[in-house]
Simulated assay, not measured.
Amino acid sequence: MIKEENLRQLLKEQKSLRVRLHEQDWEFEIWPLDKLNEWNNGYNVQESLPGYLAFGSDGGLEMLTVEQSTGKVYSVPFIPMDITEGIKVSDSLEELIEKQK
């Protein structure tokens, strides 16, 4: 189970993450770790994507989320904010971070 504090620990040294999305590389900015809860609430992530935590965005179209029960990372569009529109980008946040090296 991924909780907000686990997410903060894993991301503490990350400023951005590059993911393969729509057949090209996309750069996602990691949200300020002290704002994760506030920004998840502001975007109504728990209402739209129950069981997910958002932690970054590409600047407007897509957000990075982690499924709390599995740890899998998805890119989900802001509109519509619906997991059925999401794309799995990694089986875990650790795996995604390791790909950056």
Rank of each mutant, 00 (worst) to 15 (best):
4 E>W: 01
25 D>S: 14
58 D>F: 01
8 R>T: 06
52 Y>G: 00
98 E>N: 13
4 E>K: 15
44 N>M: 12
14 Q>F: 00
48 S>F: 12
80 P>N: 11
9 Q>R: 15
43 Y>H: 14
38 E>D: 10
101 K>I: 07
86 G>T: 06
22 H>G: 03
30 I>H: 03
72 K>T: 06
16 S>Y: 04
21 L>V: 09
101 K>A: 06
40 N>K: 11
86 G>V: 01
18 R>L: 07
5 E>I: 14
3 K>L: 07
17 L>R: 03
12 K>S: 07
43 Y>K: 15
3 K>S: 10
29 E>L: 13
39 W>Q: 12
83 I>S: 08
11 L>C: 06
63 M>Y: 01
56 G>K: 05
26 W>G: 01
82 D>N: 15
16 S>V: 03
10 L>R: 14
63 M>W: 02
25 D>C: 08
78 F>S: 10
9 Q>P: 04
66 V>Q: 08
101 K>Q: 11
9 Q>N: 14
29 E>S: 13
70 T>C: 11
50 P>D: 00
4 E>Y: 06
26 W>H: 15
100 Q>D: 02
98 E>G: 04
43 Y>D: 12
53 L>W: 07
29 E>G: 09
73 V>G: 05
9 Q>E: 13
27 E>T: 14
18 R>S: 11
49 L>A: 03
33 L>D: 05
17 L>E: 02
71 G>H: 04
49 L>G: 00
71 G>L: 02
87 I>L: 08
37 N>W: 05
16 S>C: 06
57 S>Y: 00
28 F>S: 08
56 G>L: 04
21 L>F: 05
2 I>C: 02
91 D>G: 15
101 K>R: 14
43 Y>L: 14
17 L>C: 04
11 L>N: 10
86 G>D: 04
22 H>D: 06
